[in-house]
Simulated scan of single mutants.
Amino acid sequence: MPSDAPKHVDTSKGQTSSGAAVMAQAVSYLESFQPLSHICEAWCGIHVKPDDPAKQNIAYHYCSMIDEDRRQCLIYDRNAPNAKLIGVEYIISEKLFMTLPMDERKFWHSHKYECESGLLVQISKAGVPEMVVAAAEKAPLEILVNTYGKTWQLWPLDEHGCCSSHVPMGPPQLLMSFTADHQVHQAKVAERDKEMNISTATKRKEREGVIVGHPVAPGADQWCSGKVWQICANCHQKKH
């Protein structure tokens, strides 16, 4: 059974909503969602936990532009109305990354490999021909391949890609992106391909010699050399 299965909630204890119908009515008549209206890109990738590379999860990104050097993305566990918000990613240009102090760069990963390899794919509507999607991906991928991301996962997932607790538990966890073939679980790629009805292998072939990034800037992807940093869940506790 999925670990995020619904649980009974005592209505006398104060719920966050009086019902989906009421919320829908509020959306229709009262509320403004201007920041969300600026979301203009949807991408699916696979993240890895650097201190436990066996933990890899599919991540659906919905991104807006701050300016030409900065994007901000909401990350969900699936592309569905009932999706859970599991994290955030900030994406910056190579130019901006190069201005960061070296001690900050340890939190950031490159996008070169995932763009070139086909791991990062555009989320398209059902029925859109793959030829159309491939053409639409090209221009943004030519930009993204030279960008850097800082990803915080707020809601841990289990091995099935389900939220591992009824509410988000523990401190945020820093996630990374892949830099080489041997790091990626092919079973996870196959799972993602099935979910999206795509072929990562075909994407990779289409991008060979077309989507080509710059060499990765110094300081990024430090997890690959064994330099891993995470927030410690018990750092507030005094050592005895």
Rank of each mutant, 00 (worst) to 15 (best):
K84A: 13
C73T: 00
L74G: 04
G170R: 07
G226R: 05
E94M: 13
A201Y: 06
E104Q: 15
T151Q: 07
E94D: 15
R192A: 09
P81E: 06
K205N: 10
H109V: 10
Q222P: 01
V189Q: 02
G14C: 12
W43C: 09
E41C: 01
A136M: 15
H38N: 13
W108H: 06
L74W: 05
G170W: 07
M65K: 15
L100H: 06
W155D: 06
R207D: 10
V210N: 07
H185G: 06
T202F: 12
S93C: 07
Q25E: 09
P140E: 08
E137V: 04
D103H: 13
S32D: 10
A135S: 14
N234K: 05
H182M: 07
P101V: 04
K203F: 09
V210Y: 05
A42D: 10
Q72K: 15
I231K: 11
E31D: 14
Q183L: 11
Y29P: 01
S17M: 06
Q25S: 08
H47Q: 12
W108Q: 01
K205H: 11
A201M: 10
L74V: 03
P215I: 03
P81I: 02
A233Y: 00
C44G: 04
M102D: 15
H240Q: 14
S199N: 12
V132D: 12
E208H: 05
H38A: 15
S18L: 13
R207Y: 13
Q34D: 13
S32A: 11
W152I: 02
A136W: 07
M65L: 13
G219T: 01
G19C: 08
I211W: 03
L100V: 00
G127K: 03
K125W: 04
G149Q: 04
W229F: 12
C235K: 11
C73Q: 05
H185Y: 01
I231Q: 13
L30V: 04
E94T: 06
T179D: 02
E208K: 09
E191N: 02
A83F: 08
T202W: 07
M196G: 00
E114F: 00
T147S: 15
A190C: 02
K95P: 06
T16S: 15
M169C: 12
A233E: 11
V132K: 12
T147Y: 10
C162K: 10
E191Y: 02
S124H: 09
L30Q: 11
G118D: 01
S37E: 11
F178Q: 02
H214A: 14
P53C: 09
I39K: 03
Y29Q: 14
L175Q: 12
N57D: 10
E195K: 15
E68W: 04
A187R: 09
V184G: 03
V167S: 15
D69Y: 07
W43I: 04
P218S: 06
E68H: 07
L119Q: 10
W223N: 03
F107V: 03
S17H: 14
E31P: 00
A201S: 14
I58Q: 08
S28E: 14
E208N: 01
N197K: 13
V121E: 10
P6S: 11
C162T: 04
F107E: 15
T99A: 09
W155T: 05
P6M: 12
K112P: 00
C44H: 06
K150N: 13
D193N: 07
W223E: 05
